Simulated assay, not measured.
Amino acid sequence: MGWRDIEAIWPPVILTLALAGVTTIILMAVGTPIAWWLARSRWRGKEAVAAVVALPLVLPPTVLGFYLLLCLGPFGPGGWIAGLWGGRTLAFSFSGLVIGSVVYSLPFMVQPLRNGFAAIAPELVDAAKTLGASSWQVFWALAVPMARPAYVAGVVLSFAHTVGEFGLVLMIGGNIPGQTKVLSVAIYESVERLQWGRAHLLSLGLVGFAFAVILVVMLADRRTARGMPAG
């Protein structure tokens, strides 16, 4: 493996980190209200909503990628949205990868947050409201700080899951250097071209990253189980 191989890995690495970062930020904004509602709502049909959110856990990535490709393509909603700035499709673009990654990684943010919010004793919420706190104040001043370990787990899992995506990103993004060629696709391409050194370097990096993710999540779970808020 030469210097050219090392140089060639940086664009996919940077693109992958950008995709995972943007996706995780969006997932925090979208997943927080969904998780709070699932944890506190008494509506009988909420588990059906939870099942829809969890679908990416059991659906093959190619199935989800196929339907997302239709939605993001020129004849779907994505084509109409892209037309607002003169484009034809959101597929095979960074924006399309972000949308697909948010859908695909949603349960990895929602489930830890739901568990964290559900672990908050109802008596604490009732006491805060009795003291005059509004629902908004209860959420931000009580629920979010107490669910901090759950946020750590959700952020780490969502980021890591986005970094490791392959089937879905290949379906809706293809292999366009600088736009949709993420790490997993770069490894696949390296193996296809028999560039074993480059494939080893990328793969070993992801192995180390996966180990760090598992360690962080396990530590966060231990803190949650002990009822110790982070910080």
Rank of each mutant, 00 (worst) to 15 (best):
L219K: 15
F159H: 05
V185W: 00
R114E: 15
F211M: 14
L183W: 05
V191A: 14
A230P: 01
F166R: 09
V216A: 15
Q179I: 13
G116W: 00
G154V: 07
P177W: 04
L194F: 14
L215V: 14
K181I: 04
M228D: 11
A147M: 07
Y188M: 10
L113R: 01
I120Q: 01
V102Q: 01
F209G: 01
S203C: 08
L124G: 07
G167K: 04
S190G: 11
L201S: 08
T130P: 03
S105F: 02
L170V: 11
A119P: 02
G205C: 07
P149G: 10
Q179T: 14
M109H: 03
R114Y: 06
N175R: 12
N175L: 12
V103G: 05
S134A: 05
F166H: 06
L201H: 09
Q111M: 14
N175W: 01
F211W: 13
G116R: 01
S184V: 05
G167Y: 02
L194H: 13
F211T: 14
A147E: 09
H161D: 08
P107I: 03
A147G: 13
T162L: 07
L219Y: 10
E165D: 13
V169A: 07
F166E: 02
V217N: 09
F139M: 03
A150Q: 03
L202D: 04
P145Y: 05
L106H: 02
R222K: 10
V155W: 04
V138L: 09
H161A: 12
I120F: 01
R114P: 00
T130S: 13
W140Y: 13
F108N: 02
Y104K: 06
V213I: 10
V216M: 12
L194I: 13
A143K: 12
V213H: 08
V102W: 02
F117L: 06
Y104Q: 09
D126F: 03
Q137P: 03
L168H: 02
F159V: 07
A153Q: 14
A150T: 11
L219T: 09
A210L: 13
R114C: 00
R193K: 14
G231I: 06
Y151K: 11
A230F: 10
V191Q: 11
V144N: 00
L204R: 07
A186N: 04
A212L: 15
A230W: 11
A147S: 15
A225W: 05
L131F: 05
A186C: 03
M109W: 02
P112M: 03
A212C: 15
W136K: 07
R222V: 03
D221N: 12
A147K: 05
G132P: 06
E123K: 09
A212V: 15
K129H: 10
D221R: 12
S134V: 00
